[in-house]
Computed example of a mutant assay.
Amino acid sequence: MRTRTTLLDGGVHSALRAVGAAAKRGLGDAGLAELVQIRASQLNHCAYCLDMHLGIAREQGVSERQLDLLAAWEEAGEVFDGRVRAALALTEAVTVLTEGFVPDAVWEEATRHFDADALAHLLALIAAINSWNRLMVTRRIPAGGTAW
């Protein structure tokens, strides 16, 4: 088997960072942004992104209880409010696309909690973290890895 590349073009790296940063700023909720990125990274089995975003989430004040229960958010009751639950449901639907599209019910629930601008930024954030996850998992960059 050929060795997997650890290289990532500098322009691609900069562009993806810019998309993620713009999406986070536009969303305006740093804690929610981290929960979304962690949940997508859990689904994609991306140790690198999990390691990074769990640390950032703690710095942003996301509770340990939320971090501990994120993988089972649907069963976690009041730990996650309706807005966070809508964002996590959208994150899962976009990340997995099991039926080839985001279900209308998931989209409608998201529109109840986010205006058009915030929803556009949330969707961009989900797309960005999924891109990062795929780049890191495909290249098998480990948690704490520094190779690009």
Rank of each mutant, 00 (worst) to 15 (best):
R58A: 01
R58I: 04
R58N: 06
R58E: 06
R58S: 02
E59K: 12
E59R: 02
E59Q: 13
E59F: 09
Q60F: 15
Q60D: 10
Q60Y: 14
Q60I: 06
Q60L: 03
V62Y: 00
V62N: 07
V62H: 08
V62K: 10
S63F: 11
S63A: 08
E64H: 03
E64Y: 02
R65M: 12
R65I: 13
Q66T: 14
Q66G: 10
Q66R: 12
Q66K: 14
Q66M: 15
Q66D: 03
Q66L: 08
D68E: 04
D68N: 05
D68Y: 06
D68A: 14
L69D: 02
L69Q: 04
L69A: 08
L69W: 06
L69E: 05
L70D: 10
A71M: 07
A71L: 11
A71C: 02
A71H: 00
A72K: 01
A72E: 09
W73F: 15
W73C: 13
W73L: 13
E74F: 12
E74G: 11
E74C: 00
E74Y: 02
E75S: 14
E75W: 00
E75C: 06
E75Q: 15
E75K: 14
A76I: 13
A76Q: 10
G77V: 14
E78L: 15
E78V: 15
E78F: 13
E78K: 15
V79Y: 07
V79K: 12
V79A: 14
V79F: 13
F80A: 10
F80E: 01
F80C: 15
F80Y: 09
D81A: 10
D81C: 13
D81T: 04
D81P: 13
G82R: 05
G82C: 10
R83P: 12
R83L: 07
V84G: 03
V84Y: 00
R85W: 09
R85D: 09
R85I: 03
R85C: 08
R85Y: 06
A86T: 12
A86N: 04
A86P: 14
A86S: 12
A86V: 09
A87M: 09
A87P: 00
A87F: 03
A87H: 09
A87E: 01
A87K: 02
A87Y: 08
A87W: 01
L88A: 03
L88G: 12
L88W: 03
L88F: 06
L88T: 12
L88S: 00
A89P: 07
A89V: 14
A89H: 09
A89K: 03
A89N: 05
L90E: 12
L90A: 06
T91P: 14
T91H: 02
T91N: 05
